[in-house]
Amino acid sequence: MNNYMVTNLPEVAAIVLFGIGFSNLLLARNLIKKIIGLNVMDTAIYLFLAAKGYVDDAAAPIVSAGTVDPDLYVNPVPSGLVLTGIVVSVSVTAVLLALTVRLYEEFNTLDIDEIVHQLRRKDREAMR
């Protein structure tokens, strides 16, 4: 095990943030809070990718005309990947929130345990 944990602080922060979001996803019973947890996980991924593309003492990748020295600019590839991630995250969040609205209209609650409880009761009544 190398001791790069200290030099890779943004990556460490991204992992911790990912864990916070993931535990929120597992533990929160409110559906909106679950979606917030998923978004925290997304943000952790953006931070990780941005940290991967960073180069010390380098500028943003807006190159000037003529010959270009690539050592002067940060890596543009992770920036593009973050853009893709943001778009997908926004779309998934919109669909999840729409599903949550429908669930709330149906069961009048956002508590996932309560929804499962009501569904089981309906099943039992249908069996009878």
Partner: peptide
């Protein structure tokens, strides 16, 4: 895994 990754910011 992060502790095994290369140093951040190295060109």
């Amino acid at each position: 895994t992060v502790s095994e990754m290369p140093v951040m910011g190295d060109p």
